[in-house]
């Protein structure tokens, strides 16, 4: 079997997550249980080999916290928007499928953007084209070109703030070349 050795650093987020799940399932966060969980996590990660998720190696906590707050706000807004449309618009709602090309070509970034996009108001990922890294998004209540442009901008802004949190240096440079001021807030 030809396995690419995964460096400990790449595997660390997965191991930490496994330990947290272990502690949560036992409802016991005492050091002994966590150490045993870490042991099992290492064994599991060695035996049940999965292709590693290629992280960029940087994670900006200062940008992640406001992003998480904005994200939570948008989850709330999404539910109320759907409820409003269900009650007052109902059968007459107009939708659209919009193609949004993304900047990044890494699987992680496309997946993360797709996940966040699926949870914020009025958008769901219908189809992904990995070769051109284009997301095809189903937008709820998209009536005209103005709404389409708004949806597209929203998706690309989300990707931009995700890149600023955990994108690679090259993606950051591409973002800066586009003329995004570095001080722009998360999910703006």
């Amino acid at each position: 079997m030809s396995r690419k050795r995964i460096s400990f650093r790449t595997e660390l987020p997965l191991l930490v997550w496994l330990v947290v799940v272990w502690g949560a399932l036992w409802r016991d966060f005492s050091p002994g249980n966590l150490v045993f969980g870490a042991l099992i996590a290492v064994v599991v990660a060695r035996i049940f080999y999965l292709p590693p998720v290629e992280l960029s190696g940087r994670f900006n906590v200062l940008r992640a916290i406001p992003f998480a707050a904005v994200f939570l706000g948008k989850v709330v807004a999404a539910s109320f928007q759907v409820m409003y449309l269900a009650v007052f618009r109902g059968p007459t709602v107009t939708n659209a499928v919009v193609a949004v090309p993304l900047r990044s070509h890494s699987d992680l970034m496309v997946t993360a953007t797709g996940h966040v996009i699926s949870l914020i108001p009025g958008s769901l990922v219908v189809e992904v084209d990995r070769s051109t890294s284009t997301l095809y998004i189903h937008g709820l209540n998209v009536r005209n070109d103005v709404d389409t442009a708004k949806l597209r901008k929203e998706v690309q802004d989300t990707e931009a703030s995700l890149i600023r949190i955990m994108g690679t240096r090259a993606e950051m440079d591409a973002l800066r070349a586009e003329g995004w001021p570095a001080t722009r807030g998360a999910g703006s």
């Binding site: 989850v75 269900a86 709602v93 189903h138 709820l140």
Partner: peptide, 26 residues
């Protein structure tokens, strides 16, 4: 809200919005 969306929206895609988002917040 999710159930109302399921009943009132006209097609599968809009029902999907109704089924996923309120579920997470709820």
């Amino acid at each position: 809200g999710a159930a109302i969306g399921l009943l009132r929206f006209p097609d599968l895609m809009s029902r999907m919005h109704a089924a996923t988002k309120p579920q997470v917040l709820g």
